[in-house]
Design a protein around this nucleic acid. Structure first.
Length: 417
DNA sequence: TCTGGGGTCCTAGGACCC
DNA sequence: TCTGGGGTCCTAGGACCC
């Protein structure tokens, strides 16, 4: 029988930090979001204490102190590097796989018997852990959605779970829809209001009713849960459709100059990535956000422009981004977040001339190549363009970051013998 | 006092056309 | 005096994921 599986790293960010701090194995560890705002990864010990995912750090301050929880700021360069090591090994074991996120991949596999498959997966788990040192779980079932659920079971039962169709069918009356991949809080409520609580309920519901109440998303979910794959495992990574950069401010910001500095920073980030991918973009939008917990909740927003001719020119885009800020910015509103979003990409080599091209649009500043050179040599964003204020008043804190063990020479781990 | 960031896909509703 | 309706396209925002 053919199966679809998912492999993922256990407590990935925490496991990455522990890789270089073996003394922390068995101790309670959390990794914080940027701005050190909330918990984004928890070790098993912390999960067992009942600390939920995403909890604001200030709410568990006492617990951190009392129970000796060790905290780290997010360190994405490290996690990305470890991630690529994991997938390099995975590739040798599972040729047909689709990398889905920084810490997980789908794959296909076939086997004659359940016992044989379990033994194969177990051997893979051991091999990955031996080569990279990050603990992983593997689970397989008939579809991606079923496999994601099987993976939850794997985490509680030694890291490997195989669900054949009979296993799955027996489980469906006991699985609440809220535990299913693709069902968040809002959808769970809507299903509940329609009298659908478990996976078995959804499978038994007439397709026409699902279609009229929940649209194409509901129909696909039903099929996946019934064992008919709607989402194939695709080895080729679909080209990225958008690039975003955004960050919360440490404090509320009301000066437009500071907002513009932040927007200029994010624009430099997305354009650097765009140029690295050798792409050009048509759509540029900026967004300004307010606190999610105040009187100005609905005062943020976004605004975009579409260019007839795709571009990767920082000077041109910066001018447009600032014009968007001028239109969106409201002096009465305290902003807490800003970001830049680009989409509508085409390859850099293709010169797509529009019939209606405004000649202003195709100008290209030599500053771009200059910046690329500086960035390559001295690291991203050493040289800035479009900055109004001296300090980065908007920047967030990241006070407990681990050393760059794998991406900076000076932070290499030292082996003591 | 203090609540992440980067993605994807889908849909509701406005603008526009005839 | 009487004042349509259906289709398409686009965009902002919603919902979800990790």
């Amino acid at each position: 029988m053919n199966y679809i599986g998912v492999i993922d790293c256990n407590n990935f960010f925490v496991s990455c930090e522990r890789l270089f701090r073996p003394d922390l194995v068995g101790k309670p560890v959390v990794v914080l979001s940027s701005n050190d705002g909330c918990v984004v990864a928890r070790s098993q010990e912390v999960k067992d204490m009942g600390v939920p995912m995403g909890v604001p750090i200030f709410q568990i301050k006492d617990m951190i102190k009392d129970k000796g929880i060790i905290t780290f700021s997010s360190h994405f360069a490290l996690y990305r590097d470890i991630s690529s090591r994991v997938f390099t090994v995975v590739k040798t074991l599972l040729p047909t796989r689709e990398i889905y996120s920084i810490d997980e991949a789908f794959f296909t596999i076939s086997a004659h018997s359940k016992a044989e498959l379990e033994a194969t997966l177990r051997a893979m788990k051991i091999e990955i852990e031996r080569q990279v040192g990050i603990p992983v779980s593997l689970a397989v079932a008939a579809t991606k959605t079923q496999a994601k659920y099987a993976n939850r079971l794997a985490k509680k039962s030694g890291g490997v779970t195989v669900l054949d169709p009979a296993d799955w069918e027996a489980l469906t009356p006991m699985i609440p829809l809220q535990n299913i991949w693709g069902v968040g809080g809002k959808l769970e409520m809507r299903y509940k209001n329609a009298g659908l609580v478990t996976v078995a309920d959804l499978i038994a519901c007439p397709k026409s009713r699902i279609a009229s109440m929940f649209g194409i998303v509901g129909v696909r979910l039903q099929a996946e849960l019934a064992g008919m794959p709607m989402y194939a495992v695709s080895e080729v990574h679909a080209p990225q459709k958008s690039i975003m950069s955004s960050r919360s401010f440490e404090k509320n910001v009301t000066e437009i100059a500071v907002v513009k500095d932040a927007v200029a920073y994010h624009l430099r980030q997305v354009v650097a990535e765009l140029r690295h991918l050798r792409l050009k973009t048509k759509n540029l939008s900026i967004f300004l956000g307010t606190s999610r917990h105040g009187d100005y909740l609905l005062r943020g927003g976004s605004l975009g422009v579409e260019n007839m001719t795709p571009t990767d020119d920082i000077v041109f885009l910066l001018k447009q981004a600032f014009a968007l800020v001028d239109r969106l910015y409201d002096a009465e509103v305290p902003y807490k977040k800003a970001g830049v979003y680009i989409s509508g990409f085409s390859p850099k080599t293709v010169i797509q001339q529009s019939l209606f091209t405004d000649t202003d649009e195709v100008t290209y500043s030599p500053i771009n190549d200059l910046l690329d050179g500086f960035n390559a040599r001295y690291g991203a964003d050493m040289v800035t363009i479009g900055t109004h204020t001296k300090e980065r008043k908007w920047q967030s804190k990241s006070e407990q970051k681990s050393p760059a063990y794998t991406t900076r020479w000076s932070d290499l781990a030292v082996v003591k013998t």
